[in-house]
Amino acid sequence: MDALQIEKLTKIYGSGDTEVVALSDATFDVAPGELVAILGPSGSGKTTLLTTIGLVTEPTRGRVVLDGELIVDHGWPAGLDLKRVRREKLGFIFQAHNLIPFLTTVENVMIALENNGVAAKEARERSVELLRSLGLGHRLDHYPALLSGGESQRTAIARALANRPRVILADEPTAALDTENGKNVMRLLKKLAVENHSAILVVTHDQRMVEGFDRIFEVSDGRIVNERRNGISADA
């Protein structure tokens, strides 16, 4: 079963003369363990695609099935608990890391687990294990302000992975990092996607980072204009 199925996903802002089509008829599937890049210039609609999948922006039309659950059906289905879906099935990685400044590294990961009802002791053990596996064992009790950019991003990745979500959505995760750290983060994401069977969608406009992706969607003016798979291009 695909981790994510997207069909004719469309987002239109305003109406009449002020109508802006931010995303138009996006259709694709993502398999578990797949690392997908959504590439495009600023204003092309790639972040809108990410936020509609992430249940942050309500789409105007289209369908999205996440891990077998219909989460978009020409808008959000009535009664859908958006927070539950985000908590249980989605993970988010941000450009600016978005770590909670008053929580330590380990607490930043723990909160994602506790949100899902994991008891504090178990949450701590799992968080420590996860952070150690990402090379942050020596930074467990540091506040985000004391972490380097790469360490902060790895902490954010740990938080996104904590609940073993089916899909991880990453918004420009390497934008605040230098090339070397950026490549390290991409390698890490690829490794984690395979290990955890999570589909990872990465929005980026950084062409340097696209080498390791399984598939690349190029977005322009709200449309997917090109799809590449392992170097094979298929114009949309």
């Binding site: 985000r86 908590r87 978005n98 400044p101």
Partner: peptide, 16 residues
């Protein structure tokens, strides 16, 4: 505000 937005995005319940 940004922290609260992040908490909401990662599914933190309103009561928290």
């Amino acid at each position: 505000l940004r922290v609260i937005a992040t908490l909401k995005l990662i599914g933190t319940r309103n009561r928290v």
